[in-house]
Design a protein around this nucleic acid. Structure first.
Lengths: 199, 199
DNA sequence: AAAAAAACATACCAAGTGGTATGTTTTAAA
DNA sequence: TTTAAAACATACCACTTGGTATGTTTTTTT
């Protein structure tokens, strides 16, 4: 990698961690410069302003991770009930970057920025939309493969599933104990099996 | 009401609205002073600092509304499936103060403050805990009254229900269309009826 | 009515904010 | 090897932030 691209990436990575740990608005530019050891001149060479960096973090850090780690696995032919459950279990209990007390980076961005920054809202919408679409398609595939009951409304079910995830991430911030995740997962399984032909 | 108490209340009300509309951290003291027409001296007479006001808003604005409007109605003897569904429907579709693009005030506070402010975390935990407790008790009562299946884990189900609500509030910020609420409610009904003896 | 406390008003400030202007150094093209 | 553009560095700035110091006015108590 070229050196310039490396510093840009370095900024994005460290800033992402900082923002996940302290929030976007409360992470100051000086914070970022201090932990990256990058000067202001270098920063503003790579980004027009702080918000452009924020968008870049979503596009270049969040999006790839979610796409490769959580969306792609759903595109298998396996039982969606199991695919979705495993996705959630991995997100909640096995992912080592995510911390219960800090919630979900994407949800944090939405909560903090969506109502007031059109651009943030847009890229976050796209990210959510592709996730939503993939889950819904997985359920549809499940119908064809005989895993899912034909009368299930895939889009509705997807919205319900995603909302549960985003919500439990927020509840986790209060409880700070993975027991709440486990309780959620149990009921998610219950719900999923109510969509299943087997359940 | 005494005049001093009135200005204090006035600050709390207007500040609450401002914060709901723009977020806690991004609502500046000067914002609050400008819209309340209260001077800095008066503000700092009533509150030690901005955070103390934030806590007061949760304790004296949020808590009463949630308690009287949403917790109390759950304490009836009726079918919890219907009580819970009606609570959600009211919160999502009928409450005129809450705006879809702005989410849930309590959830916003949690998202924005919980990880970093112990005190905020504490009062918000308490608020959530009483809500949780009431829903769980409603389900338990439902078991005794024959509405809810005996093998339902009330605490788990409560966590699942609450997480769905908090999550759909966040998803709503992106979609800005109550269609997503309606989709959520349909699946909530489906889930609730899976707990019911009738469903 | 005098005194004291409560309630409010004004002026000020240190620290931090994102951002710019103007450099210097490094890299790569000619 | 010169030259120009890319990449980075430093100093500065206007503005906003929450908060304080020090008043004045209004209420209440005696």
């Amino acid at each position: 990698m070229k050196k310039a691209a490396a510093t840009r990436l370095h900024i994005l990575q460290k800033a992402f961690e900082l923002i996940y740990n302290q929030g976007y608005q409360t992470t100051s530019l000086d914070d970022i410069l201090a932990t990256t050891q990058v000067t202001k001149g270098a920063f503003y060479y790579h980004f027009k302003n702080k918000d452009e960096m924020g968008i870049a973090i979503i596009e270049e850090m969040l999006k790839p991770v979610i796409t490769s780690g959580y969306i792609a696995p759903l595109e298998k032919e396996a039982n969606p009930v199991e695919l979705i459950y495993e996705m959630m279990q991995h997100l909640l209990l096995k992912n080592e970057f995510l911390k219960i007390e800090l919630g979900c980076p994407a949800a944090n961005f939405v909560q903090e920025m969506a109502p007031w920054h059109e651009q943030f809202s847009k890229v976050l919408s796209e990210l959510t939309a592709t996730w939503e679409k993939t889950i819904a398609e997985s359920l549809e595939k499940g119908k064809r493969n005989g895993y899912i009951q034909k009368d299930v409304n895939s889009k509705q079910a997807t919205i319900f599933i995603l909302s549960g995830y985003w919500g439990i991430r927020n509840l986790g911030k209060l409880e700070k104990d993975t027991a709440i995740y486990k309780a959620y997962l149990k009921q998610l399984k219950h719900y999923l099996s109510s969509l299943s032909t087997a359940g």
